[in-house]
Design a protein around this nucleic acid. Structure first.
Lengths: 347, 347
DNA sequence: ATGAAAGCGCTAACAA
DNA sequence: TTGTTAGCGCTTTCAT
């Protein structure tokens, strides 16, 4: 028996509280109905006579009854929990997607269980197992690369799955994202059109960024640009790492030219480093970021970047999952949210 | 019966999967032992003979068994879930605390259920109820202000509670944080010592920031400074709002002087706005932030700020909660993590 | 519209 | 060390 003593509101006396002893049965007895009726009153009030409903609600209020969703989930085989796995919770970019996802699901009575996988497949696999033990009704994944074991577990769980932030013709179930290949190409094209002659990269070593970088380099190669110096930094972007990245590039003799960054944060670091060295942006160093985060439009000079509708990824993921959960037909299992280049002052 | 079809690894065939039908009993039968033994093998392996353990583990591996924690939690009255409620999940400052909290708890087999309350007591109350229905073993709260109903619910739940990011002599149960009053005073003192003569504030309208502001203004008053213009912006800090905040102050005729910001993000906005107007930092506008976020040391000029050990709040909260959960004596129920002023270039 | 009864998958005494 | 027996608190047919 676990009980704990909490200070009362007055901060004074300490008395033993029986832990959560108000159950459905207690409410039922108090309302003079069967437990099943209380259950219905809570979950399908339209199936209960108004008079009964009132009595039940009053009993609930007077007891302060809080349903036990562990029991409910076990009995109904629906946990009303949706798991979401992101590489990093301190990366705003993913959190904004999760926020939209979460809000949309909340409206339908689901709660989101958030997990942080880091940028490796192994930790993802472990996390998926952990999270599946809570029997979520559906699961949100970041990226489309998962270990074989992870795929198996997901398959065995028999729940709707949405993979996000990328695209593939053959998703596990559903996929909502955009093409990183096309981003890389489009950025190359954009910078080329702007008349830059030297091109560099400052990128985190995350897999999706690498895809963009590769496409960028290839597109440039197609334009006759063969030397594209790269400054790779560790996976969690920060302003500091952006500064290091540019310093690195400059050390490699990178002259006047444009730098494609794998995130706006890194881009901001590049701008900062340039400024602190007295280099002009964009004349000496032009910069294009990725993400169009909130600050992008407001730093000085304003950041040119690739705009990703992060909230849309969350919303559409929720929407698709909800359709699955309601056994509605899903119009399309591959949803492309696209991207745009927002030309501001840095490139 | 909810079953869903997922593409198999090969992306080809679509076959119905029975949803998670591997239970403890199946594993037990396969291993030729009683269900209880499998349970022990998983939860207290030291109480099981090595030979038996091996057989069980093999059965688990070959079936891909994933325990059902809803059932486990119901039976044992321990969900191995700890709820954490923060005002905003897109505010890095709180998320960093949660990350440390989460990591520490993971080591002891707990998973964190994260909830976002916004900056109001009502939504917090609703969220607490929602979250308690999952029967968490403990709960992490941000701030010390909660509605009466919320306090009641928490009390009734009978679980350990830690309030954070603030201090009070009479916590609900445990509190880990620092004194916002003292921050305000200390900042005033610091700026005064540096020889500034005019003082302003750019602040979000969140309650804890307001406490700091008030203490700052009072301390200044004690020094004979009576006019402290304030630029208040909406609760979610952003670079843009920082810029607006300074613009606002400047419109009020704020001359050369120092500005105390309620977050580093706002401070960065203030610096940016100053720069974009050709004002010198710190000569014309000096700035002190709050938080010492990762970027603070690396923006240009480097930000002077109040350093809060956010990870320590998370760790110590986890530690204290863990002690409660293990029925160990808790040395102190009020834990002050303190703060420091980091003098860099902006003030 | 409501009630009775069975059981979801697991853990926790207690026996053996 | 292992097995047996009861539930945990709910939802869900199936009756009524």
């Amino acid at each position: 028996m676990r009980t704990h003593e909490l200070n009362s509101t007055t901060g004074g006396s300490r008395s033993r509280q029986k832990s959560q002893s108000v159950t459905l049965d207690v409410v039922a007895r108090l309302a003079g109905v069967a437990p099943a009726t209380v259950s219905r009153a809570i979950n399908q009030p339209e199936k209960v006579a108004k008079k009964t409903l009132d009595r039940v609600n009053q009993a609930i209020a007077s007891t302060g009854y809080v349903p036990n969703l562990l029991a409910g989930g076990l009995a109904s085989n629906r946990s009303h929990l949706v798991a979401a796995i992101v590489p990093s919770i301190i990366n705003l970019v993913y959190v904004e997607t999760i926020q939209a996802f979460s809000n949309k699901l909340r409206d339908s009575g689901y709660q989101v269980l958030l997990g942080e996988s880091g940028y490796g497949q192994e930790t993802e696999e472990t996390l998926v197992a952990t999270v599946l033990s809570r029997r979520p009704d559906a699961i949100f994944l970041t990226g489309i690369q998962h270990s074989l074991n992870c795929r198996r577990q997901l398959l065995a769980a028999g729940i709707p799955v949405v993979e996000t932030w990328d695209l593939t013709p053959s998703p596990l179930d559903l996929v909502v994202g955009f093409s990183h290949d096309r981003v890389g190409e489009t950025v190359a094209e954009f910078l080329f059109q702007r008349g830059f002659e030297r091109f560099g990269i400052v990128s985190a070593d995350d897999p999706r960024a690498m895809v963009r970088n590769k496409a960028y380099v290839n597109a440039l190669k197609g334009r006759g640009v063969n030397d594209v110096p790269v400054g790779i930094v560790e996976a969690v972007s920060s302003l500091q790492r952006g500064r290091q990245g540019l310093a690195n590039l400059l050390d490699q003799g990178f002259g006047p030219g444009a730098v494609f960054c794998s995130s706006d944060t890194l881009a901001q670091g590049v701008v900062t480093e340039a400024q602190s060295r007295g280099l002009r942006v964009p004349e000496d160093i032009a910069v294009i970021g990725f993400g169009d985060q909130n600050f992008a439009a407001h730093i000085f000079p304003a950041l040119t970047t690739v705009k990703i509708d992060r909230a849309a990824i969350g919303q559409k993921s929720a929407q698709a999952l909800l359709a699955r959960l309601n056994d509605e037909p899903v119009a399309e299992s591959v949803i492309d949210v696209g991207f745009d280049i927002v030309a501001r002052e840095t490139a």
